[in-house]
Amino acid sequence: MPKQELDGVELFNLSLSIVGTVLRDGDQRVSDLAELFDVSEAAIEKAVMAVANSEDVKNCETHFYVDVEELAEGYVSLSQGMSSLSEPPSLSRRQLSSIAIGLDYLAAIPQFKADADLQALRALISESSPASATSHIPSRLTEQIETLQEAMRKELAIKCEYINQTGAKSSRTIDPLRIDFIGRRHYLRGFCRTSGELRAFRLDRIQSLTITGNSIPEKTKGLPIPEEVFGEVTEEQIVEVTASAEAAEIFWNFPVAGNTKRTGDQLHGSIRVGNLAALGRHVAKYGGMVKVIAPESARSAVRDFAQRALAGASAPGDED
C-alpha cells in the first residue's frame, strides 16, 4: 500500500525523530526506519536530507554530518556537528491531547475497558479523563466482539441472523474483516457471502453469531474497505432538509447531495436516503430541530414515525 505523502511539518517531525533514533541506537537501514515510522523510504531519505542541509550560514556552522554516500546505499549514518540537538523534544500539548483523546476513546470500547496496558498508558500520557458514568455496554455486545475477534484471528467466516433496515431477519454468512467503532456504534465490516458484497453490519442488529469452519478467501482479505458506513441503499431518494446548528449531524449521518448552506444558525441542504422508512427516526429524534422540506413522501414518513411513537405503536422497519 503506498504511504501517505508527508507535508513540511510532518517531514520536520520525522527528521527530529530520526536524529533521536540514530544518535541513540546507531546507524540504521533506511528500510528499517521506513517500517518503524510507517512511511515510505523516499520520505526517510527526504527527512535525512533535511538534517544534512541544516547549517547556520551566518556562523558557517554545520549542524549534522550525514554520510550521503551511505544514504545512497540505503543506510542512515549521521553524527553531531555544531548542533546540540540529541533527541526529539517531548510532545506538544496539542500532540498529547490528540493521543489522550484517542486513548480515552479506546477506553470506551468494551474490549479495552479493563485493559491494564491502556490504563498504564493513560496514566503515563496524562490528561486521562475519568470514565463516563453514562456508558451502557451490554454484555451481549462484549461477547459478540470477542467472537468476531476470534473469527478474524483464525481467519474464519461467521454465520448470524441479521435484522436489516426494513426490519426483516435473514441468515447471513460473512467473512469478517474489521470492527469499526464510530461515535457510539460498532460495525462489522465484512464480505457478505449471502449478498456477494462488502457490507457494514451494526453489531446491535446481529443475533445468533457463530464461527464457521470456512476460511476467509485470500482475495477477500485484500478488499479495500470504504471509510464511510452508510446503510444499504435500495431505492435512493434525494431529501431536502433544514436543521438548526444543534442538529448539524444529520448531514454527517447521510451522504450529502450538493452543498450545504448555512444561514445564521440554520443549515440547509439535501441528503441521499436509501430507504424512507429509515428517515423517520433520524429526523424525529431531534424533536423538531430538523425539518424535511421535500419530497412529501419523506415528510409523511417522518410524521408517521412520530405519530406512531406518540401512540405507542411500533414503527415499521428502519435502516441498517
Partner: peptide, 23 residues
C-alpha cells in the same frame, strides 16, 4: 489512538506524536 483521528483535524498532530513516540 492516533489512527482513530484518520485525516481529520488533530490527525496530523496524532500522527506526528506516534512518530515521536516510536523514536
Amino acid at each position: 489512538a492516533a489512527r482513530s483521528w484518520n485525516t481529520q483535524i488533530f490527525g496530523s498532530a496524532a500522527r506526528s506524536s506516534l512518530t515521536r513516540l516510536k523514536s
